[in-house]
Design a protein around this nucleic acid. Structure first.
Lengths: 189, 189
DNA sequence: GTCTATACCAAGATAGAC
DNA sequence: GTCTATCTTGGTATAGAC
């Protein structure tokens, strides 16, 4: 895959995190990626919308891998909860509260206005749900309960990002991690 | 307070729900509010940013009243949880998944780019936290635990909105309501 | 306080040379 | 595949009559 294409996707993802979809201009993308306008339309003939969908899908997959990594390190899914939320909290602090998740940041913004982006976010969320659900099921939960709990965990972390970025504090996000740990432990008991 | 000002704020709130802050133009506001451009700048000399902050504060207060109402009807805070989440889910379905909460929709979008809007969202969230915290404390939780749990509940509902709007399904949002009910019940036990 | 017209700029997208 | 120049549209904001 082209280096230029990679630079464009990476730069767009970074801009999306702090400015959202509508707040990011293709001119900014060309500057940050050090790539000309023509290259954007060469790799993404559908323009901004197609580029945005690619950013969601590719960074969504990267976050899923990150979750798998943290979950593997934590050993079991109960201990993975605080590890996951605290890791996210650390990342937020280190980046001065720039959003660390471009998917969640974009999903609500465009859900009613850009159908291809909504669909891209749905497929990313489906992957995340499955990753968490699989581990919950492996720990003993039946499939339906595991899916529902996985979705609550995703909702909690995305909503937690919202509060943390607004307040510029990760205190609540960390506390939410322990609440999710309680919820998982109770479900498995 | 002027009728025109009210129409402007209401129309902007509605547009924010489906399109976000950057996705909503002042031209659309003039059309939906049936008010001229001059009136926007008369009531909000600071332009779009000042109008946006007013929308966040005023609709944030309205949602807080709605929560109080639902909590009063439910009787106790444990039963208020599913009532609250299911009510939100019903509203989402009735509006064809237009966002029912302009605050959460805007908060992440502008947290790093529009300081006055970030501050407005913080003060709205503070009111919500306090409303839930007060009821949790009245039910027997100590202040710190009540505050942390209140924030998790807010995170869960806002993240739940995100998933529900993206997926165009309220199944997960309702399930998250029962998870929050479990969490509250366990904390009070 | 309300309205119309408009200034001014930045947006997304395209054309066509290289 | 890359780049520059440019088209067209739409954005926010302002001016000034009423």
């Amino acid at each position: 895959m082209s280096e230029t294409r990679k630079r464009i996707v990476t730069a767009t993802g970074e801009l999306f995190r702090s400015q959202g979809f509508n707040g990011t201009s293709l001119k900014q993308v060309t500057e940050h990626a050090d790539a000309p306008t023509g290259s954007i339309y060469h790799f993404f003939p559908g323009g901004k919308e197609e580029l945005g969908a690619a950013v969601l899908r590719e960074s969504g997959a990267a976050y899923q891998q990150l979750f798998e990594l943290i979950a593997d390190e934590a050993g079991d899914i109960v201990d993975a909860m605080p590890a996951f939320f605290n890791g996210a909290a650390d990342a937020l602090e280190e980046t001065d509260f720039i959003d660390i998740c471009p998917i969640g940041n974009i999903a609500r913004e465009v859900a009613s206005t850009h159908e291809p982006l909504r669909e891209a976010s749905v497929s990313v969320f489906a992957g995340w749900t499955e990753a968490i659900q699989t581990r919950l099921a492996a720990a003993g939960l039946d499939a339906a309960e595991a899916e529902a709990l996985a979705n609550t965990i995703i909702a909690a972390i995305e909503g937690g990002f919202m509060l943390a970025r607004a307040r510029r504090s990760t205190t609540d996000l960390r506390a939410t991690g322990t609440h999710m740990q309680q919820l998982v432990a109770a479900a498995l008991a």
